[in-house]
Design a protein around this nucleic acid. Sequence first.
RNA 1: GGGGGCGUGGUGUAGUGGCUAACAUGCGGCCCUGUCAAGGCCGAGAUCGCGGGUUCGAACCCCGUCGCUCCCGCCA
Length: 439
Amino acid sequence: MLRTVIGDLRSHIDETVMIKGWLHVLRDQKKIQFLVLRDRTGMVQITHWKPNDEDLAALVSTLTTESALTITGKVADNPSVKLGGLEIQLESLQVDNLAENPLPFEPFGDKDNLPALDYRLDWRSIDLRRTENLLLFRVQTTMEMALREFWIQNGFMEIHSPKLMGSPSESGAELFELAYFETKAYLAQSPQFYKQMAMAGGFENVFEIGPVFRADPSFTSRHMTEFTSIDMEMSWVDSEEDVMSNQERMLQYAYQRVKDVHGSEIEAVFGFTLAVPAVPFPRLTMVQAHEILNQVGYQLSPEKKNDLDPGAERAVGEYIKQTTGSDFVYITEWPFAIRPFYHMKKGENLTRSFDLIAGGLEITTGAQREHRYDVLVAQAKEKGLSPDLIQYYLDFFRYGCPPHGGYGMGLSRLLMVMLKQPNIRETVYLFRGPNRLQP
RNA sequence: GGGGGCGUGGUGUAGUGGCUAACAUGCGGCCCUGUCAAGGCCGAGAUCGCGGGUUCGAACCCCGUCGCUCCCGCCA
């Protein structure tokens, strides 16, 4: 017999079916037993009148919640059953894996008793069973598919760049170093150089969704040492505006898709209505952002004179939300002094770069890149980088590299904002941080 | 790397100088009922992170230490 998923049972009334799932609840009464079985598509009540089969009744009595079971029985329409108005009359039962008892914690218990995040991460295999998590990762799947659709419809190609690198590329962010045969290698902290190589390679438009690694000992609710980066790069741009315009339309497309597919579930599980953002997103230059900070009385620390700190990003985000209703805002015209060497300059001191702030959180940095070899070499030197270490990269720009731009966006940060989660550890499948390498 | 907070049964909390350390949930047993996030009764389970100090007396105050956590730095 083929397995039927619980969500499809309604179309199998009066048939005998086989279902598989986890024992959600067992109500073991004197004459009758009720089992609630859960799979990824829903839950159903299974009923067993004990005198019909005392041996089977005895087996049912030994079951523990969250055990993995295979059950056969006849589907019966029964409007008095609160769970879907149907039930399965138990015929046979196979215990695929009896759950040890007690469980480390109750994944479906009272919200008030939900264990601390760190403890749940220790028992992630059980934590993932929670309704919130099942939905969260289904949303992630839908969202990623929408992103790929959008890109492919717009002439982008998907690339998979290496995560092992021979030399530290960009300065700044810390690199993980590892033994590599007779020499050393580094884990890629960004696909930046490789996606730009695709511009030189004539692919014109590329994207990559893949892991990046940062050896920063950051202990915050929004940092990880390994995370999935959503990267894109597009050729023949006139300015960074082309990149932003593409990104905001893509995000709108993805939000719309998630809302279409999961909107009602998000309301039921997370308790809010997903809002599809309007485009274009508001844009502020750094100067304008500082004017707003002055206006709302936000005190920027002195060493952040031409920059924004996280508090400032939240303040600007809040201001934009209140004045325009937008959850998203682009900050443009960042000083070259605090940007990487490959961002194209705009005038002497600014760059054609931008950050995207969503829900007060920085989720993207992007820019038009400097594609002119001589200018790029000069900017690298200005940043104190030794050109010979990155000559392989600089060579991309010697034989006809088109003007281009792109961005990197944190997948889990985007999900954090979309589903209003307070901690990135809630929105990543398995968290990696300075103190967590397991499970 | 700097700063703040927290650490009490399996889990989540209450208790801030005098308690046999309380409650919820989970767990075990019993009772009852076509139940439905079932209900009722009983029971087991914590030397209050660890070490030292103050005090007649410490879960509670002080010092140290470990763990977790958040903020800043850095970033996505």
